[in-house]
Amino acid sequence: MSDTTGPATAPAAPPRADCVADLAGGLTFDLPAVGTAGPVLVLRRRGGSGGPADETRLPLTPAGEGHVRAVLPASVPLAEGRWDAYVGERAVEPGIRDLRTLVDRVPDEPDGVRVRLPYPTADGRLAVRSWVRRPHAEAGDIVLGEGVCTVEGTLYGARPGAGAVAEARLGGEVRRFPAEGGEAGAFAFTVPYEVLAEPPVTAERLWELWLRPGGDAEPVRVSRLLDDVWDRKNVFVYPVHRGEGYGAAPCYTTDNDLCVRLTP
């Protein structure tokens, strides 16, 4: 009796995409045509409801030399969040990511910023982090002093004016500090740690930093988005100031929002 069992077929390698970001905020994805099943590259927003607004379908077109290409123009809306990339039902792996145009980018949008940043997930897949902030307070230099930190930055989509203040928020608690405005949307404010340490610190506190451009203006979250770093939390680490009964330091969240962390 002959053995008709053939050699096991190795599973096809996952599709891999190289990404290029352009100055306008668009993204281009290049994939090998061989083994790329499906006519579109699909971006699905993580944690979404699964409706049409949580999926963006980008046609794959021939790009020469055995490759296909999908383009996400800056003009196509992409809601804030994390978008995983698929071809068919197969997750896409990250290839080369050319993000040079995102470094020190100066947006020209009149009402704020839109940022699309491709990145590798912890389990090796390709995703796009999208931010939509209108207006947006971009954190720049953070200067550490004795018991204080001074945040400098640029406000896009609004201008700091009379009555501008910075706000530190923890749940329903708010602490306010004077903010200065300058040319081209420049702002600066200083946060004294001891004000955030009252009453005595018995557990970790993560105070969110916001900028209110004027007395009647809505507050704007202070973040750092205009470069190629998709998760600043463990990259930008600042020295801890030791106060009486607490430690304090500025920090970023995984969404690149700026905070001040207090610990007992």
Rank of each mutant, 00 (worst) to 15 (best):
S2T: 04
D3C: 01
T4S: 04
G6R: 14
P7A: 14
R16M: 13
C19N: 02
L23H: 08
A24L: 14
G25E: 08
G25W: 09
L27Q: 01
D30T: 15
D30A: 13
L31R: 10
A37K: 06
A37Q: 12
G38T: 09
L41H: 10
L43Q: 09
R45S: 06
D54L: 09
T56Q: 10
R57L: 11
R57T: 15
L60R: 05
E65C: 07
V71R: 10
P73G: 12
S75R: 13
L78E: 02
A79C: 01
E80Y: 00
G81A: 06
W83D: 06
A85N: 06
A85E: 07
V92T: 04
E93V: 07
I96Y: 07
T101F: 01
T101W: 01
L102A: 10
V103G: 00
V103T: 11
D108W: 08
L117S: 07
L117P: 05
D123S: 14
R125F: 03
R129D: 12
W131Y: 14
R133T: 02
R133P: 00
R133E: 11
P135G: 12
E138L: 03
D141F: 04
I142C: 04
G145S: 09
E146A: 15
G147T: 10
G147F: 05
G147I: 07
V148H: 12
V148I: 14
C149A: 11
T150N: 00
V151W: 01
E152H: 15
T154E: 06
Y156N: 02
R159P: 00
G161V: 04
A162E: 15
A166C: 11
L170Q: 15
E173I: 09
V174N: 05
E180C: 07
G185K: 12
A188Y: 01
E198L: 11
P199L: 07
T202Y: 02
W210N: 10
L211F: 11
G214D: 13
G214N: 06
A217I: 00
A217Y: 01
E218T: 13
P219V: 06
D227I: 01
D228F: 06
W230V: 09
R232W: 07
V235E: 14
V237K: 02
H241K: 07
G243L: 11
C251H: 00
T254Q: 13
T254N: 13
L258S: 02
C259P: 00
R261P: 00
T263F: 03
T263W: 08
P264G: 13
P264A: 15
P264D: 12
